[in-house]
Design a protein around this nucleic acid. Sequence first.
DNA 1: TTGTACGCGTTATCAG
DNA 2: CTGATAACGCGTACAA
Lengths: 336, 336
Amino acid sequence: MAGAKRKKVTIVDVAAKAGVSKTTISRYLNGKFEYMSEESRQRIADVIEELGYRPNSLARSLKSKQSFVLGVIVSDITSPFSPILLKGISDCCDRYGYRILIANSDDEPRKERDYIMNMIDQSVDGIILNTTGGNDEFLRETADMGMKFVLADRTIDLDLFDTVHSADRDAIGQMMRYLKGVGYESVGFFTQPLTNSTRINRCQIFREVYGSYFDGMAQVYFLEKKQRDANVMQEFMRRNIDTKHAIFTGNGVATMRVVQTMRDLGIRFPQETGLCGFDDWEWMNLVGGGLTTIALPTYDVGKECVKRMMHLLNYSRAGEPRRVELPCTLQIRHST
Amino acid sequence: MAGAKRKKVTIVDVAAKAGVSKTTISRYLNGKFEYMSEESRQRIADVIEELGYRPNSLARSLKSKQSFVLGVIVSDITSPFSPILLKGISDCCDRYGYRILIANSDDEPRKERDYIMNMIDQSVDGIILNTTGGNDEFLRETADMGMKFVLADRTIDLDLFDTVHSADRDAIGQMMRYLKGVGYESVGFFTQPLTNSTRINRCQIFREVYGSYFDGMAQVYFLEKKQRDANVMQEFMRRNIDTKHAIFTGNGVATMRVVQTMRDLGIRFPQETGLCGFDDWEWMNLVGGGLTTIALPTYDVGKECVKRMMHLLNYSRAGEPRRVELPCTLQIRHST
DNA sequence: TTGTACGCGTTATCAG
DNA sequence: CTGATAACGCGTACAA
């Protein structure tokens, strides 16, 4: 009958119809066939099939203290980064039979905190966190209470959690070497304000290694309000007027703003300045003959997070928190 | 102590410490303060605070048959469409105190089916589905069993579910009128293969309305394998050589492939052909002076899906399934 | 205004 | 090999 919300069939229904106790059904469900006659085994299989029985995960989790659900909190779901990460996580979870509860913190520590608590209330087995960075102490406490965390992409100061991210130092080194190799004499680093660990880290590395490749001081330019982008750009052009110079952006959003600004100002690449940067998004192949970029291993970061989590879950406190770095790939195109 | 997985505090702990029965605690948790002395009420509040007690959602859901979790299945999480939809859903869910379990079907009906069953096992209260379109019969059965569905963006033939999507007919009409207004004489529709309801629908509408704006037959071009894109493009150019012509793409991916092909072939817009299409992604403002596009109300689609779901959940079978259409916005830029 | 006792659907511990 | 029976943490008649 359409609309007839038939009652869910439970383990007792199966037991009754199969003429055994629910204990036996439970054993069957958990694959403990050693303790069961071939006959029972077969009859149970039939009855389950016939009744279309499906075990209730809630009840199961309540009893067994394992929900096979992981929480995932991303800092900005609308960023092109997040979907790739999520796909890596999701695909890998499938292999292990885990589901994912997803939340979006919007880079607000308060939301992040709330979601973490909610997820704990829901008994997730662990949380993969692309953290805002504003809850360090809370994370420590929560971890102390037994919750498992793996940090994706972003780090925190506490050396307490497994962390998976891209090998930015190596990538920056490669890019600098390449730029020098093709004749550039100075490079300016364009970044959004240093409000998270990824930005801080990349900027820091740029400063550290700059001297190994080029003369002069490392130049860093900040993209704050959009209206000021043109000024920042012009300052860069002015200061580097008598060298062959390139722009190195800290991420895809910065790249986009630089491209937009250059278009507005009528500055052409690679003729007037080189352009390259972190993040290799599809459209970057379409503007002005293609952009030279650093492609991040985001999908693999997701995958690796899940693997680390499985490790934590199965081998418990297996020692010191590990930091996994995955390699980036240089995509050399027309803009440099 | 670090690592000391202290035992979760439960309702009985609170009851004991507050010197009342767990019934009273339960009442407190559910806001039934009428049945409680002001004194108890205060003491319970204190104890909960002191113990850091948080109710276990699993146990609560198991008993009450309400999990406050919605399932969301998107057909392709890496598409730029999905994150916006998810943000709309997520933001709106927050307001109603719902959490979301997310899955990615990869446009595979088999996965979609598996995820739906999983979600039911997890006792989600309802499922918001951006469907592959390959599970119509299964959806019908599942709905008959009492599960609530709201379809996001994509439709199925069965007129059985609430559906929320963009007002494509209206958008196409606007675009055609605009193109005609600025002097175009013929328009070719470029689309990926018609493998889902959105593509089918847009193509169908284009064909239907073409005659109201332009002379001649409606032309539809299919982007199948990438290697053949150039041929398709050249055929379009050849057939429309003696009219002022434009390309109208069925979605953002199609737009990207067209842009790429035009670049490879050295065809310039708007000089040699106009270009416009569905989807307004950020980079579209950056190529060749900006693309004329149809911006979709994706965020609002997500929001509206949740609202429909809340309606279903609270007012049960409130009548005929409704189809909600949300308006698109024409973004006129340099490419037409 | 408060408490007792049972049930939600499973799993785990026994004893046969 | 199998089956009572007691949890898991919470909600709710029903009784007091």
